[in-house]
Nucleic acid binder design. Structure first.
Lengths: 341, 341
DNA sequence: TTGAAAGCGCTAACAG
DNA sequence: CTGTTAGCGCTTTCAA
């Protein structure tokens, strides 16, 4: 492990002071003779010098890194979101630190504290909502963006999709296609805005059509709950006596394990049985018939988060010391598939 | 943006020197009176002090962060790998910085340099192979792990799967199921070991069965190439005059767009037409019939990378200054599905 | 156009 | 048991 070359080494070799090298590194060429400038350039090249970002940051607490805290980075939403966020940040020389909470409030707190100690310059979180006070306190120190789940946290920006409206539209779409009953399958709301809003949207649609809402709660970890959900669907199908019914899941992760169980039922898709989900799983176009779904603008959300953070991190804080807090809502759209017709 | 509390603040408030506080923070309680210790604990709690990781790291160049450089973080391999890597690292208080190269050698170089300046303590890369010299140089300064693509880089560890053997097995599996021709669809090898090895495995199997190899090259970005591939399959099926044939793709990302095209052919799956792929896409179990595939131990690779890096980062370098370089191969396994029978 | 010097927040000898 | 002191590598006044 060789010793790393420092600004001092460059200064010595070039026969100038470290101040001058520092100036060169920071592009302040105007106060420097062309000769000195060229000399330093050559030495830096020769020695392969790269400034220690740590030392640079120590003074201004600028680490050129931004953290993303998500429930599970393998969730399709997170994958797309993180990727586009990462792309934007990289373009501005920022690094993305990714952390997982698994949805656990204690872990979330620890992770956030640790990130704070690491002096990240900003944070974007898919939070569970339990650490609101902590996040509000952090929002006073650095830009904080809450994504996907639009909890109300003082000082934090939010980026989400129009869950309620899009969910309502999907349910209406199903009713309009002639499905007399739409069974909504979701996870326990657990106070999570996204889930609550999607459920509300479904209920809005039921109310609009004066149809009774049928909500089935499942637990993704629990296969039994999925089987029970399929059982409920089966019973309702029988009770419907041939009238078309549909299943609409609150997200793609629920539909995944449920899909096979539903297809095993003796119900013809889409004629007497419709299927749809919020989210657009990558397999939606591979199954036969293709799956009707709600596409979230995942990439746009990531890009928007990146832009927002960079603007806040770069820019001087607003004159009154408190910048505008953005609440961005990016609309989702229905992608009709063969599973509803 | 309030001023952050420093070790000095704590020292002042507690009426001790910063050294003592530093000792407390680093858990060296033995050299400290119980009274002092309690006093400091109280003040830290009161002020909500958290040591500045930047300043801590400046001295020892320990940033508690490790970087992962991948081609595309949304690739299924990367998603699973990064997640399990992240989990391991977090458990040891390390942060994971994720960067993308898009497979571009220049970007890879820039990203790596930038990470170097950031003083990450180690790197794991899914490299394109063009920056071997740079990586070898870095491997002299910090632990470097090459994952997925087992390029030979001096001083770097590698973690990969047994691509050639697993690919051979899959091809043999297909021949054994009675498919007389197995068409292998892959991307341009581009010098990437993973691709070369999988192709070799297929060729090994063809040689063993004394069957001519049929390799079709496609470009994932190019729909036309996929259609041409499907065309080749169609022609071969006709030439086979009812004899069963199969398609075997080099990875799941190729199979995804190809799948629909192949299913549109008038060929019965699996009786006269078999389908299989390297990788296990999450939709493999959702389509009907389920898709036969090769499951890579993605999570294990991530966990192994994490363990390896942490061991090397923590441990003192070996006495001779050059630690053992690990070449880890984790085996893949065939997951039989209904698409071959 | 340049450099000396004072830190940024923390750790680690070395003395008491 | 505790404090003094000297940096880690770099930026930034303030003078020259």
């Amino acid at each position: 492990m060789e010793k790393r070359v420092t600004i001092q080494d460059v200064a010595n070799r070039a026969g100038v002071s470290i101040t001058t090298v520092s100036r060169y590194v920071n592009g302040r060429y105007e106060s420097m003779s062309a000769k000195t400038r060229e000399r330093i350039r050559a030495v830096i090249e020769e020695l392969g010098y790269r400034p220690n970002a740590l030392a640079q940051g120590l003074k201004a607490s600028r680490t050129k890194s931004i953290a993303a805290v998500v429930v599970n980075m393998s969730y399709p939403f997170c994958v797309g979101f993180l990727r586009s966020l990462s792309l934007i940040l990289t373009r501005s020389g920022y690094h993305l630190i990714v952390s997982e909470t698994g949805g656990d409030a204690d872990i979330e707190r620890d992770v956030v504290q640790s990130l704070l100690a690491q002096r990240v310059e900003a944070m974007v979180l898919q939070t569970g909502g339990e650490n609101g006070d902590l996040l509000a306190a952090i929002a006073e120190q650095m830009p904080v963006v809450l994504v996907d789940r639009a909890f109300a946290v003082a000082g934090a920006h939010t980026i989400a999709t129009n869950n309620r409206e899009a969910s309502r539209e999907m349910a209406l779409h199903l009713f309009d296609r002639g499905y007399r009953h739409v069974i909504y399958v979701t996870e326990d709301e657990a106070g999570i805005p996204t889930r609550i809003e999607r459920l509300q949207g479904y209920e809005d649609a039921c109310a609009a059509r004066e149809v009774a809402a049928t909500v089935v709660h499942v637990n993704r970890q629990d296969v039994g709950s999925m089987e029970r959900a399929a059982g409920v669907v089966s019973e309702l199908a029988q009770a419907a006596k041939g009238e078309p019914i549909a299943v609409y899941t609150a997200n793609g992760l629920i539909m995944m394990p449920l899909y096979r169980l539903l297809r095993q039922l003796p119900l013809a898709v889409p004629s007497v049985f419709g299927m749809a989900t919020f989210d657009e799983p990558d397999w939606a176009q591979l199954v036969d018939p293709t799956l009707t779904c709600v596409r979230q603008p995942v990439e746009e959300m990531g890009a928007e988060a990146g832009r927002l953070l960079l603007k806040r991190v770069h820019g001087k804080p607003a004159s009154d010391g408190r910048a505008e807090v953005a609440r961005i809502v990016l609309p989702s759209h229905i992608v009709p598939g063969g599973s509803t017709k």
